[in-house]
Design a protein around this nucleic acid. Sequence first.
DNA 1: CTGTTAGCGCCTTCAG
DNA 2: CTGAAGGCGCTAACAG
Lengths: 380, 380
Amino acid sequence: MAVTLADVAARAGVSAATVSRVLSGNYPVAGATRSRVLRAVEELEYVVNGPASSLAAASSDLVGVLVNDIADPFFGIMASAVQSEMEPEKAGGKLAVVCNTGGSPQRELTYLTLLQRQRAAAVVLTGSAVEDPEHAEALSARLRRLAAAGTRVVLCGRPPLPEADGDGDDGGTGDGGKGIPGGGAPLTVAFDNRGGARRLTGHLLALGHRRIGYVAGPAERTTTRHRLEGHRAALADHGRDHGHDLLAEAARLTVHGAYDRSSGYDGTLELLRREPGLTAVLAANDTVALGVCAALREAGLSIPGDVSVAGFDDLPFSADASPALTTVRIPLHDAGARAGRLALGRESAPPGGVATVRTELMVRASTAAPRANRPVPQAG
Amino acid sequence: MAVTLADVAARAGVSAATVSRVLSGNYPVAGATRSRVLRAVEELEYVVNGPASSLAAASSDLVGVLVNDIADPFFGIMASAVQSEMEPEKAGGKLAVVCNTGGSPQRELTYLTLLQRQRAAAVVLTGSAVEDPEHAEALSARLRRLAAAGTRVVLCGRPPLPEADGDGDDGGTGDGGKGIPGGGAPLTVAFDNRGGARRLTGHLLALGHRRIGYVAGPAERTTTRHRLEGHRAALADHGRDHGHDLLAEAARLTVHGAYDRSSGYDGTLELLRREPGLTAVLAANDTVALGVCAALREAGLSIPGDVSVAGFDDLPFSADASPALTTVRIPLHDAGARAGRLALGRESAPPGGVATVRTELMVRASTAAPRANRPVPQAG
DNA sequence: CTGTTAGCGCCTTCAG
DNA sequence: CTGAAGGCGCTAACAG
């Protein structure tokens, strides 16, 4: 039905093998022959049959990028950075495709299966992982199988997989260890969420804040936990230095919600209910922070005059929100690009397989010292 | 290397054909046999070899979704809606993958080639098209070939392709017309950008605005042009009814920029320079509108007290921006879902192959009647 | 440098 | 309802 290699070969007066060789470009072919073939390809508008090629070569040019929420720039930036490393225009370039899990562990597994079915060259998993042990087990099993099948696995923005303990290979290949083709152990580009959160809370404490609310992300996600840990570590630091235990209050001043604007809004209302004397609110990320700001404003509180607000991630809109948001910068583009290169094997693996990217505190206009005696609104 | 159909067959004590049949599920197989096979599949952790299967069946379960900017929720929402129709968990479900063109026509073509190479089941192109005639020609040629190869093509949020005039099939198959397998002519889910813009500008005119600035999108994109046309149509309506020609001013009060926040910011500054007496600014979309608001605020102008602002698209953040943004709602999710169903052939084609989705004016807090004598800032 | 020869793993008639 | 057999289009050794 469609034009095949053989058609091109016939037209160029060469064998199919020769056509294949000029197309893949990794084998010497005489200049004259090459151009004759290329012309035939043009004339016939030939397009390689990917499945056939993948089958014969036992390899594919698909690279999957899994994201939790495709409508969130946090993931968009990483995904496009990964894609930017793929060079799809060049021969041998990969086709990076992004798959939206919607944050569902089930869907994550489904996509991994589909990608495994396609014999994807690599898979990049971005964003926080769900901490449910059952899912974690299913996930690492699947990832291990992918790696064993030669698919490179890269984690970006999530912690490294737990060591595959037990080696419970039920009577399989029985090869003694490093028999894995292109895969190997999953590589990781991790974010220093803990450190970033710690510095951020430290910044607020240094400004003099003592009643700090925290609108955290979903309770079961690694990113949420790490940021929360950093936050509490800073509170603990403070307690150690000043003999003033802020940790006891921490749980009461923490609410959980999704990584979206409305949970920032709702969370802030709840926090205000619990503690009308709040002088600062930390948000799970910048998007949540915008919701926090909206709720605060509607409550008649000024930012940072009455209440300071800070986000996390430093997405593009944060710098020119009003007021400009104090936040923790994660170099998402760099991280994604690096993950992309690792996925292609174009960059050597970091020691231990884990690269941690530094986060940076961005102090802007949304945080300031608390007012000495801020008028406490009437509690509901 | 990996476990194959034959392995499963051997384990289940049946032939490969039988395994294939239970897996694809579209052929009668005895219940006992089926469960025996399924168990073998489980035990062996068998995963179909996609390329082999695609080759043999001459079909694939890949569906490509092309977007201009993956970090923009406008596209994220459509893409996830498309994916939501794919049912990847079910047998016969498709793998929807999104490809980020970054707005580059070249990259758009590259991805289409790659998708054609993969023999994608369908391709959905979202967002505005570039109007360069050369590219348009290359694009429709590629799309026609895709369709001819059996790939369903759906346009979502862009105008239908021009009719393939000439029928310049250079001595090809010579089948007399409707010989196309699954493809057929590209289907379109178009947005009524023109009508939406017209109502939006009409709304401002009705409020009493006469000096309306417009921060438009990139000049060469269809969406930009349609929204601008709607805007000017409303101005023309007004002139006709009131004998007051606003069109003459329109060009001077229009600036072009990217679909991002900073062009809203910069564009507003430029408009203010050209016409310090502006009472309203229309933005290419909601994101741009946020930039407009930022610039206005920094210029010491209040919204909507001094200047009204309106966006387009009604992205989630628009409703709770401050002030809440007047905008034109496009049912992006519905449109994307419909495109997805059309791509799967699960919904019958609209008459003429083009479905136009209605847009809806959302009047919120960012627009109001102009102040009778607003203090004109000193021009620079 | 180029042609020939086997498959890659699966689907799909065609028999039974 | 199940098995046997051929071939999908391409690549990767081999020869030459």
